[in-house]
């Protein structure tokens, strides 16, 4: 893609191109960021460069839950105060953060790093499923909560996990699906509405 600069390999155009590769950053923003850094104090530029290198060098996956972490086991797996009889399975580290932000769940996590998507060539072996099974074997875990997305891929992944987990004799649950707060009933799609009716609760 053209960035307004001819890619002559100069430091400035190299930085513009590097910014341009980031998601959501177009050629103009890439130029603005570059010129901001040119004028910024050296410490600021150095801090940014080091922070970038740090995430690449220090961040890895937790050997138990496969969340991104700089210590192994991660803060969730290492926290003795958390309920070790529950594991919440999510697709991405960002989903884990979303569940954690609510503050209602105090158990452990497991990050799959994706969802089953045969059309994109992602099968069970592309996810951390084997690792989940290995981890549950002989563990004190009594409940696995499937918190994958409610998309077709997420649902398929949940179905698949339910099938491979059932021989372990562990309770497998799925996050409730239904109407989101603040939504208009008339705009709810049929699938959401029908699961909402099926999953209705006494008030």
């Amino acid at each position: 893609m053209k960035s307004g600069f001819s890619s002559d390999g100069s430091p400035v155009s190299r930085l513009v191109e590097a910014f341009h590769k980031l998601p959501g950053i177009g050629p103009k923003v890439a130029q603005r960021l570059t010129y901001h850094l040119l004028r910024a104090p050296e410490e600021e530029a150095r801090a940014l460069a080091e922070a970038i290198l740090d995430v690449k060098e220090k961040i890895r996956l937790c050997s138990r839950c496969f969340n991104i972490t700089d210590i192994d086991p991660c803060t969730f797996c290492g926290d003795e105060g958390r309920d070790r009889t529950m594991v919440c399975v999510v697709e991405k580290p960002l989903d884990l953060l979303a569940v954690e932000r609510v503050g209602k769940y105090k158990g452990l996590y497991h990050v799959l790093h994706g969802a089953l998507a045969p059309n994109e060539g992602v099968g069970p072996e592309g996810l951390k499923v084997k690792e989940l099974l290995a981890r549950l074997q002989g563990s004190p875990v009594r409940e696995v909560i499937l918190a994958t997305n409610t998309s077709l891929e997420g649902e398929t992944t949940a179905m698949y996990l339910q099938r491979v987990l059932s021989p372990l004799g562990i309770r497998v649950t799925r996050l409730a699906r239904g109407l989101p707060f603040g939504a208009d009933l008339e705009y709810a799609d049929d699938l959401t509405l029908s699961t909402a009716i099926e999953g209705r609760q006494p008030v």
Binding site: E153, P180, G182, A183, D184, D189, D190, L191, T192
Partner: peptide
Amino acid sequence: RPRSKLGGNVELLT
């Protein structure tokens, strides 16, 4: 987004 009015209407194979 969870509150999208398109939501499940534009899921794969729908």
